[in-house]
Design a protein around this nucleic acid. Structure first.
Ligand SMILES: [Mn+2]
Ligand SMILES: [Mn+2]
Ligand SMILES: [Zn+2]
Ligand SMILES: [Zn+2]
Lengths: 141, 141
DNA sequence: TACAATAATGATAATTATTATCATTATCAA
DNA sequence: TTGATAATGATAATAATTATCATTATTGTA
């Protein structure tokens, strides 16, 4: 939290009550991937008058500072999670039956990236999603 | 085109003039990734009265038959392209400077997929995107 | 401490892509 | 030819996000 505060301060972003509330929501929900609206309702429990615009603005700001990581799963809305590692993020498995999002840490993509380097590309980041069935749903069939 | 017609027929989807126009647009733009609106304007040149709703409906249908492949790049709108291979699709490199989308064929993901299999997942598909600079933009710097 | 500059907020309007509705028209199979 | 069904186009509705703007809060400085 102090690290985050410092990061905000560096960029002259003020750590207001609203932003604190949103950060608390994200900290309390580590491992989950929350939509802006979900964050909004959780944040209201801590800071009742917070507006949805502030939630969107704050999530955006925190994502741009890489405090949060923003991604899209079903293709209609963004979801946010705390960005643990500075350098590289993990990948996701989306269950086609129950919608559960689980995570994969292994990173076999450097090989492919270096192939692209050889071709003249400069790869900065990548995003990988798996679609399938989680162990629970897979067992049921 | 005959293969596509057969596919439509199997599912009792009629190959109307509008659908033919849209398919022509996609065939004439192989390698490109078109949004619904781009398809709409191109299709109007062939079939002037075609409506945007028909374009959306047709793209959706063709994607569900795997004649087209649908994906999202910048996070606001879907893009469509002809699906060449029945089995597995290619991956994309999005240039952070010029926005150009290029393609990668190599597929090193089976390794990761089999690791997930061992954990009890059943992986059906995956989606991989690289973000970086294309050779041209990379040279400029 | 008071003040002026600046940043942040909340309400709400606007935007954008997509989907739903529905009356009309086209196509198919018998 | 005809009746059933599918497809179409115009347009309304939806849903997520962004923009606007007047008001309020915070900050560093005099
Ligand atoms: Mn995650
Ligand atoms: Mn492609
Ligand atoms: Zn599941
Ligand atoms: Zn480029």
């Amino acid at each position: 939290m102090d690290a985050i505060n410092a990061k905000l301060h560096e960029n002259s972003y003020r750590l207001t009550g609203q932003r604190k509330a949103i950060l608390n929501v994200m900290l309390e929900n580590q491992g989950r991937h929350l939509s802006a609206e979900e964050v909004f309702w959780e944040a209201r429990k801590i800071f009742p008058n917070i507006g949805i615009a502030t939630v969107y603005r704050t999530l955006e700001k925190l994502a741009s500072l890489e405090v949060l990581y923003k991604s899209m799963f079903e293709g209609n809305k963004y979801r946010y999670e705390l960005a643990e590692d500075e350098n590289h993020h993990h990948h996701h498995v989306l269950c086609l039956a129950c919608g559960q999002i689980s995570e994969v840490s292994g990173d076999l993509l450097h090989e492919l990236e270096s192939k692209l380097d050889e071709k003249g590309y400069k790869i900065i980041d990548h995003e990988l999603k798996f679609y399938g069935y989680c162990p629970a749903c897979n067992k049921e069939k």
